[in-house]
Design a binder for these strands. Structure first.
Lengths: 345, 345
DNA sequence: CTGTTAGCGCCTTCAG
DNA sequence: CTGAAGGCGCTAACAG
């Protein structure tokens, strides 16, 4: 008798059940159940006695069993993202959690690594685990497998991309408007040759941000020139290379517009390799950068709050879960703002 | 028909049960159960038929019900952090999830905002929801409430801080060694007056990083001077102010050691406010900074992998969960490396 | 106001 | 190899 601690402790209480509490009090489990849920149908005095005993014993109900019988909501939301290490997604998660906690729900996490097959598995697993709904940052280009019909009716909200092949709610960033505004600002400052460091056209975000760029140019009567446009996977090395290529043209751009954080960083690296004599190149980009004020480069960014995207998604989800009648699919767009980080000093 | 879809679809299948599948096949639910779990005790031909029907119907078992009866593991891990928006914690989460997924487990999230009361609630909620174990980044200074005894026996692993008042496993960063090594490097470069921008002594991490600084100085026969030491909550503004204060001393430090990312950023802001004529100040700090190469300041950082911390934590957790006999509480320390970001160009 | 009966969906146990 | 009985912990639905 020893190891583990068979000391004189008051029983580590493997796992109390409602009946244990009830027996100690000489009442039926139902009484305990009612006291715990505080829904009435029980005398004040009895309730007090029960709650005192519950407190004393440290009893906590088993939510899994509760949910099984009542069939009610599990107060569980599945959040499926590509990669939590990306601050965009971790902030999105913060927003989702914030709203969930307010209604007593918890978040269950799933990462896909941008693999549509992994997404399917993760989603299926979350549904098996009884989530009330899913917030999904989609990986593939078709979302038919996210139809609630195929998921026990579990509601789904897409984040950062519109649904394709399925009618569900979604929350989006104003990619188009943000990009357009950034480009307009560069134009307002007199730039006429503006390079675009973009994302693949197959991505919604990539396509929208390009569209904003193109529209702003068009408004200014400037044609989009192939040689000023690069569209690749967001990767700082590729972005740097693309920027250097453009800047080496006989008529190089006088400004660059980067379609996301990775492209902005690549552009910054390219710019810092220029010699002091060369003409300056203006830079604008999507996504804010924390240390912008420490870089010796003026930078204009399209800023927005990823947490707000998460809050909006979770809100739509709860509304839909609790809607007796089905609502029309809704689409919420989170606005962007243009922020100038002027050259310091 | 139209709206909503009252068309001729094959029933959206509210929620199939094992019996539905069984009835369609004219077998008992047990047969379906056995086929699904693939544990044998069933004929090959029967299993095939069952699985085919399951596939056809798109039936998925209800894991909550499964766990209720079998009492086995839920394959659910609770992760409790202070704030997911902090990249340290989101990377930790990535590490935890990575290990969990390998054993078919999922992560349930809880944020505390560094509030010990919130931590208690979150932990209790996760336990009620039947997690197999918890990875907790502790908020308070005493962890007695995290004793598995009080949590239905749910195992706990502490991350980024050692247990106080309770015997559980933990994973730590080598705060002491990393800080010591950084300080040693500054000393090796000839610095004798080294300022320390630190965290509150009440934090484990704060105290350990200070200890490393103090030890390195002691080794070099240099006393720790009050006026070169600042210890406050990690906040860039406070750090900047503290750094400016030190640099304004009659005998200012020639180097600064920042105890975390926030302090490093504050120090960088302080340094950039100096005029070109003033003597340069060296800077070293805990935590790497992505754009270090774009700052025009040489920077030495103590780098480590937060995801590794998460992987280690989850691994300890599963080992303990599956250990038939209780193991001794273990402590894993993740190493740090010193990285130089030389002045570019 | 309180207790009893039954059963959520699945699995353990024991027959056949 | 398959099925029937029973119950995990809790709560609807009905009695009293």
């Amino acid at each position: 008798m020893s190891a583990g601690g068979v000391g004189g402790r008051p029983e580590p209480e493997q796992s109390l059940t409602m009946r244990d509490v009830a027996e100690r009090l000489g009442v039926s489990p139902m009484t305990v159940s009612r006291a715990l849920r505080g829904q009435g149908g029980i005398g004040d005095e009895t309730r007090r006695r029960v709650l005192a005993e519950v407190e004393a014993l440290g009893y906590r109900p088993n939510r899994l069993a509760r949910g099984l019988r009542s069939g009610g909501p599990t107060e569980l939301v599945g959040l499926v993202v590509t990669n939590l290490a990306n601050p965009f997604y971790s902030q999105l998660a913060v927003g989702v959690e914030e709203i969930c906690v307010r209604s007593g729900a918890r978040v269950m996490l799933g990462s896909t690594g941008e693999d549509p097959a992994a997404e399917r598995e993760v989603v299926a697993d979350l549904v098996e685990r009884g989530v009330d709904g899913l917030v999904v940052v989609p990986s593939g280009h078709d979302h038919a497998h996210l139809a609630p019909d195929r998921l026990r009716g579990t509601p789904v909200v897409l984040a950062a991309g519109p649904p394709v092949g399925v009618d569900v709610d979604c929350v989006l960033v104003d990619d188009f408007g943000g990009s357009r505004d950034a480009c307009r600002r560069l134009l307002a400052r007199g730039h006429r040759r503006i390079g675009f460091l973009g994302l693949p056209p197959s991505l919604w975000t990539g396509s929208e941000r390009f569209r904003g760029y193109a529209l702003a140019l068009e408004e200014a009567g400037i044609p989009v020139a192939e040689r000023y446009v690069s569209r690749h996977r967001g990767d700082t090395a590729l972005a740097e290379e693309a920027a250097l290529g453009m800047l080496a043209l006989p008529d190089p751009p006088t400004a660059l517009l980067a379609a996301n954080n990775r492209n902005t960083v690549g552009a910054l690296r390219a710019l810092r390799r220029r010699s002091p004599g060369e003409p300056p190149v203006a830079l604008a980009g999507f996504d804010d950068i924390e240390l912008a004020d420490l870089l010796n480069v003026p930078l204009t960014v399209v800023s927005y709050d990823p947490a707000e995207l998460g809050r909006a998604a979770a809100t739509l989800l709860f509304e839909r879960r609790d809607a007796p009648a089905a609502l029309q699919p809704r689409r919420v767009t989170v606005p962007t703002t243009l922020v100038d980080h002027p050259t310091p000093r």
